[in-house]
Design a protein around this nucleic acid. Sequence first.
DNA 1: GCCGTTTTCGGCCCGACTGTTTTCAGTCG
Length: 572
Amino acid sequence: MTRTNGAAAQMLEEFAELLALSGGEPFKVRAYERAARAVEGWATDVTEMDERDLDAIPGVGTHLAAKIVEFVRTGTVEELDELRAVIPAGLRDLLDVPGLGPKRARQVYEALGVASRADLLDALHRHRLRDLPGWGARSEAALARSVEEAHRAGERIRLDLALALAEELLAGLRAEPAVERCEYAGSLRRMAPTVGDVDLLAASADPDAVMAAFVGLPGVGRVLVRGETKTSVVTTRGVQVDLRVVEPSVYGAALVYFTGSRAHNIHLREIAVREGRSLSEYGLVEVATGRVLAARTEDDVYAAFGLPWIPPTLREDLGEIEAGLAGTLPRVLRAADLRGDLHTHTTLSDGVSSLEEMVAAARALGYRYLAVTDHGPRLFPGVTLEGVLDQRERLRRLGAHGSMTLLHGTEVDVAPDGSLDWPDEVLAGFDVVVAGVHTALRQSREAMTARIVRALEHPAVGVLAHPSARALGRRGPVDADWDEVLAVAARTGTALEVNAAPDRLDLDGPLVRRAVEAGCRLAVSSDAHAASQLDRIRVGAATAQRGWARREDVVTAWPVDRLRRFLARPRG
DNA sequence: GCCGTTTTCGGCCCGACTGTTTTCAGTCG
């Protein structure tokens, strides 16, 4: 995990905020913000980079490279400490209040001495803001409301919940005759592990009718913004949803704009500017003539840049534009490439569906194979060898008819010392052994790395399950030397899982990318504990895409014969 | 502060919305 990169990015973001609050040059502020995003998304850990390596990151120049080196070496940056000394810490918190930006935060600080959230509440209570230049009773009231609700800001929603919400709202919109088409965009379409809000896009010649239908949908609470082309609401559960409506003739350009990360969009627009063009949600336009060059479809827009259509999951400005221009963008894994699942549970351990139900569900999905991998006895003492052998026998009978291959497996726990639960001779009897770290997650980097490496080197282990062991919203990844782990996995040929459980999505995109570059094999699996959860493997495929995984890299996309040979190969 | 097929200066993405303004500033995405 690039946790040092995350810390460096936070440092640069703080720099940007303090510069903005001190009235710094806006373009300088933007440079820091851009560098923060670039560092955060960069695959190599900044602790392993010197100033020249850092300078090679797009958006990072000599000055910021030096600051990052200083930060890595000393844990802080002198110039940043100086800014901290001048600007009250509480002032930064004010920027988290929606609608209050650096200019006005600075204004209320200088005019009224407001230097914290508490100060702001007090000033609002006394109606001291309405008389400031540029303020009025309405803007004061809007800010007061925003402060009250600000505790929700920054809260992110799990991808699966956001998807469900989006689908529900889209179904409601599609019932409105004025809607020609609509879909979700934004970080949801990029399949980010969590999203801050839900972005919807609709094509219609009658935006008013669409907006009216939207604000009337069940579950829609307060309306934040209501314009001709953009409406923002908060659902009754507190999720912000933005709807944009455009003419059908520019739907493709709008979809490009509302799907790409900000960095991806800015990158495209900078290319356009250099070529005498301008890109917006209304199309790619030749500036000199005003002629629209592309707008109807995403394909048209990307083609006008000399680019192939870029999958939404890649639109993060992490090199996809450069690769597209160079013709080296990989053909990434698609959900339809996946032929089965190597990680599922039944009622033998902690699943809620029976073996028979899981097999029937996999058949219904058209799978070529299914592995059943209930937990071993260390996590579930009720699981006995007798029960496992009985399950194996039932599985063999179920597999005797039908074209789907059934694999008998187990998910074993990797103990703090790297040992596994089940003796080696029992492990050797499984078609597939999935090994995962579940407890003692706070080991030192050295101990955790050695623990994982030992599991990877076990001859019976075919897949390392949820390698980082993160739980979204609850705990971060374990601390391990990922370069070492990836090198060992590549050498032993042990597949690294892309676990599609919505609170895991582990490996995540950035680590998938490093794993692919290290030459590792991947296994996209559902970790389903119920028959209805098998299909979440689609989100796993999207997560693998975010790491630029190709079909070739993913063993769960291979033909069954090749997969079986892969699993049968001893490792170590 | 970054960047370069208009390269070492002089630019830097684009538009919607709100509230305050008679033409725009601030914020957001």
